[in-house]
Design a protein around this nucleic acid. Structure first.
Lengths: 173, 173
DNA sequence: CTGCCTGCAAACTCTTTGCACGAAT
DNA sequence: ATTCGTGCAAAGAGTTTGCAGGCAG
C-alpha cells in the first residue's frame, strides 16, 4: 500500500484558522441557523466565536469556558445543544479518541474531511494527518458487505519519545 | 494503495472459538493470574468461560448475564474488574466503536491483532476485516512525529442496504 | 491465617433532558 | 404575541471505587 498524499500538522505547521475563513464560517453558521428555522442568539454566536478561536482540538468543557469569556450567560446545556448544530452543518468535526470526552475542531474550508489522528497517549495531544485513502477503503470494504459507507476513522495511539525520559509531555500541560 | 490481504468475517464464515482454542486460552488465563500473583477464583473463571462462549462481540452487561448463568454470584463490579485483566493478557480485545459502551471479543490464537471494523450504524453489528497494513501505517506515521506506536484502529461506519427498505436490520435484534 | 477478592451501593464523568422563564422574530 | 431558546438542576448511562465480609493460597 502507498498512501496517496500525506500532510502532517506539526506545531511548526499548524493550520491557523485565519480571520477570513472564520468570517466565511460565521456567515455559513448564521445562514444555516436561518435556513433551519433556528434563532440567531447571542449564546450561539459566542459559542461559535469561541470554537473558531481555538488553536487546537477542544472539549465541550473547554469550549464552555471560552464561550463564557465572551458571553458569561452561556450555559453548559447550551454548549451541548449547539455542538450538534455546528457538526451537522459541517462547521465542526467531532473527534472521538475513546477517552471519555469528545473533542471538536473547526473544519477547514476545503472540507478536508479525510483525516487520520495520531494521539499521544501520555498527554492526549491529537495530531492530524490527511489520509484520503480512508474514503476509498471505506467504500471498497462496504461494497463487499453490501453496505453504504457513512464515515471512517483511522487513529494511531503512540507514546511521546521524550516522555519516557523526562516524565512529561511537552505537547500539552 | 493495495491492501496486502483481506479476510472478511461474514455470518457464513464466522470464526467460531473452537473447543481446543478455548482450552488453550483457559490455560493461558490461569497462568497469567498465577504469574501476576492474582487468585484463581470461581468468579473469574465463570467470566472467562462466558467470554469465550460468545459468538459475537459482547458488552460488559451481556458478559455479566452470561457469567451469572454459570455462577450466579458474579457481580457487575467483578466483571468490570476482570475485563482489564483479560485484555492485558491479550485474551480479549477491546473494541470501542464510540457508542457509549465498549465491546469485547476473544482474541484469535494467532494474535490476529490488526483488524479493521465495519459497523452497521443501524444495528451496531460489528464486522471485522483483517487489515495488516494498519500496523505499517502506524509505524510510518509515528516515526515522522518522533513517537512510538502503541496501537491503531480503523473503523468504517455504514448503513445496511436492507435497512432503508425494510426498516430493520437483519444483523441483530 | 493472611491478605487478596468479592458484592453492594454510592460515587464519578460526561452528556442529555424537563421545566419555567426570557428573548428573537 | 408567539414560539423557540435558555439556564438550572436533576436524570441518565456506563464505569469505577470504598468498604466490610469471604475465600484462595
Amino acid at each position: 500500500m502507498r498512501p496517496p498524499h500525506e500532510r502532517i500538522d506539526t506545531p511548526g505547521r499548524r493550520p491557523e484558522v485565519s480571520a477570513v475563513s472564520t468570517e466565511a464560517a460565521r456567515k455559513k453558521f448564521k445562514s444555516h441557523l436561518v435556513l433551519k428555522g433556528l434563532r440567531v442568539t447571542n449564546q450561539r454566536l459566542a459559542i461559535f466565536e469561541a470554537a473558531f478561536a481555538q488553536p487546537e482540538h477542544f472539549t465541550a468543557e473547554e469550549l464552555l469556558a471560552h464561550a463564557r469569556a465572551i458571553d458569561d450567560s452561556v450555559s453548559r446545556a447550551t454548549v451541548y445543544r449547539t455542538l450538534p448544530i455546528m457538526t451537522e452543518s459541517a462547521l465542526l468535526r467531532e473527534v472521538d479518541i475513546g477517552s471519555g470526552e469528545k473533542y471538536y475542531r473547526p473544519n477547514q474550508a476545503g472540507g478536508n474531511t479525510q483525516v487520520a489522528q495520531v494521539i499521544c497517549v501520555d498527554c492526549d495531544k491529537i495530531f492530524e494527518i490527511s489520509a484520503p485513502f480512508m474514503e476509498w477503503y471505506g467504500s471498497t470494504v462496504s461494497a463487499k458487505l453490501n453496505l453504504t459507507p457513512v464515515s471512517q476513522r483511522l487513529q494511531v495511539s503512540a507514546h511521546c519519545n521524550s516522555f519516557r525520559q523526562t516524565g512529561t509531555c511537552k505537547h500539552r500541560n
